[in-house]
Amino acid sequence: MPGLGRQLLATLKDVNALLEDTNDKNRKAELEQQASKLVKQISELVEKTLNEADQEYKDAEKGLKDASKTCKEAVKGLQSVAEAIEKVADAISLVEKLIAAVG
C-alpha cells in the first residue's frame, strides 16, 4: 500500500495522542473505538496492492491527512475534540470505501 500505510499510522498516532489529552469519558470512548478501527484497517490493507491513481485511494489519503491535522489542532486547543472525532470518522469511512473497492 504505497504511501497510505504511513498516513494511516500517522493518523492512528494522532488519535492516540488526542486520547491522552482528552478527559471527557464519552469522547475518550469514541476515540478508542476509532483507534481500534484504524488498527483493523491497517492490518487489512497491509497485504493489499493499491493503486495511487485510483480516486478511492486519493480520497482516503486526503481524508486521513485532514483527520491528522484536526487531531493535532485539537491537542493544541485550536479545534474541538468533537470536530476531530468527526474528521476521523470521515477518514475511516473513506478507507472503508477503498477496502471495498480493492476487494
Partner: peptide, 26 residues
C-alpha cells in the same frame, strides 16, 4: 525510516500496543 516495509511493520506494532493499552486502561 519513512518506508512501507519492515520499518512500517515494526512501528505499527508498537502503535497497536499503545492502542491496546489505552483500551485496557479505561
Amino acid at each position: 525510516p519513512k518506508g512501507e516495509h519492515w520499518t512500517l511493520g515494526y512501528e505499527s506494532c508498537a502503535e497497536f500496543l499503545i492502542t491496546a493499552a489505552n483500551s485496557a486502561k479505561s
